[in-house]
Amino acid sequence: MAVPRNVSLALFFAALTGVGLFTPGFALLAVNQHLFLAVNVLALNFCLGLGGQISLAQAAFAGLGAYGSVLLHALFPGASLLIAPCVVLGTGLLAAALSRPMERLGEGFLAMATLCVSLVFTNLVLTLESVTGGSAGLMVERPLALPGIGALGGDKLTFFLFLGLLALGSYVFLTLRDSRLGRALAACRDDGQAASSLGIDRAAVRSLSFGLGGGLSAAAGVVHGHYTGFISPEQFHLELSLKALLFLVIGGPGNLLRPLVAALVLETAMGWLSVLGDARTLVNGLLLGAALLAGYWRIKK
């Protein structure tokens, strides 16, 4: 396993690009849906892998991105260039602001608090029925569009949008990890009190990682919402947060590639399991359990 990091990164993205170029449209849809999950896994990696903070709010941030962008596009069609960055920035800032008071919570309590963020989002969408369409959901009328290029839709373009997000996220992740700030985050993760006594403003550096994660999830949500053409609360439910956490833990928080590969491979495998009929849920659970145990035994060796 002594492949240098840059080589494995290049291999990973080259393989993905190959998949994108040579997969027929309808099969690419599944790949795109898995990529949406993978971007969320990467987003969570900012909070958990770098800052050591668990978050179950990723689904809410992705949902905010999707709903925000779709609703704003209905008001200002064609202004994607303005709307998408605003929604991503807004969600990122909100995530950062939310994380500040939660910073001092221990793991269990932080899990509960962020889980509540997810549930509050879902219930707000249900309650604000006149705006969000409630549980019936919203049909997405306007695509993402760039002046000069036109609508950004379709399987291939969306694939490369997701791939771009993944590449950008990976770049930021690696740069941050190896920077002074990244080392401050690592200090918070490994020993909070030592970090504080070194003069690190824990709430500030951790809100940065939380904010970046929130923004990345929101960006994934923006692309996903316009691509699917229909958004409803069930797509941004707690289950998405749990899945992201699951795959990140399988791959190991702090690693860049392993969680992404785990998400893409296991999601594809779980899609094939539908041939099992009623035994599907059981085998899903066994598969995930086996992946978790395999990761554990690999680390133990």
Binding site: G25, Q33, S232, S274
Partner: peptide, 21 residues
């Protein structure tokens, strides 16, 4: 017949598989 897993995303995926595949 395909399983939609009660999810809009999966239902769309399977519908496209049915039509295009």
């Amino acid at each position: 017949a395909y399983d939609t897993e009660s999810s809009p995303d999966v239902a769309l995926r399977q519908a496209r598989q049915l039509v295009e595949g």
